[in-house]
């Protein structure tokens, strides 16, 4: 994998770089998915940080909770019927206490689903070598193009630099 990227000190020039890259997309022959943004913290107040914002995560979590609760209730009432023993003059399937456990398992289902959904949606874990620059940890914003088309490198460099890049680098895996 190869990439050309610029590092920016402030979000406004990063946004500028992003706009410049998007304008050049068609002319140079690459698409939105090749534009790479890496930051050390989320930038939800800038357009460049808004890629892939849409998600169904809350619905996944709610669904996970529902599944957890239903499975939980089924499992608990199954165990009570599988080996029916009377205690304290209560029914075999006791709805009130089972409700407490159903509730806990609902929440457990929702929590586990959230964690798993996060890992899948954020493509984690992924320990392969990717385009990366530790400078983002110092507040720099990385804007670049992965696998730039042949012959476009010089134009990309020029554009990244013109937006006010602190540094323009090339990444070769």
């Amino acid at each position: 994998m190869q990439a050309i990227y610029g590092l920016y000190r402030d979000p406004d020039s990063a946004q500028q770089a992003m706009d410049l890259l998007q304008q050049a997309e068609r002319g140079l022959g690459f698409n939105d998915n090749q534009i790479l943004v890496l930051t050390g913290e989320p930038y939800e107040d800038h357009a460049f940080g808004m890629q892939n914002k849409k998600t169904i995560m809350p619905w996944m979590s709610a669904g996970g909770g529902l599944v957890g609760g239903l499975l939980g209730f089924w499992f608990i009432s199954f165990t009570q019927r599988a080996y029916p023993l009377m205690t304290g003059g209560m029914q075999i399937v006791t709805k009130w206490p089972d409700g407490i456990l159903t509730y806990e398992l609902t929440m457990l289902g929702a929590i586990l689903t959230t964690v798993v959904t996060l890992l899948i949606a954020a493509r984690l874990p992924d320990w392969r070598r990717h385009v990366f620059d530790p400078a983002i940890g110092e507040g720099k914003i990385l804007i670049g193009v992965t696998d730039p088309p042949e012959g476009s490198q010089d134009e990309l460099r020029r554009r990244l630099r013109s937006a006010g890049a602190v540094e323009v680098k090339e990444f070769i895996a």
């Binding site: 023993l85 205690t87 304290g88």
Partner: peptide, 17 residues
């Protein structure tokens, strides 16, 4: 007891009716 308070609280059914 018929409604024994000891039975329902045992987590392992050691105490039952």
């Amino acid at each position: 007891c018929d409604n024994a308070p000891c039975e329902a609280v045992c987590p392992t059914y050691a105490s039952y009716h």
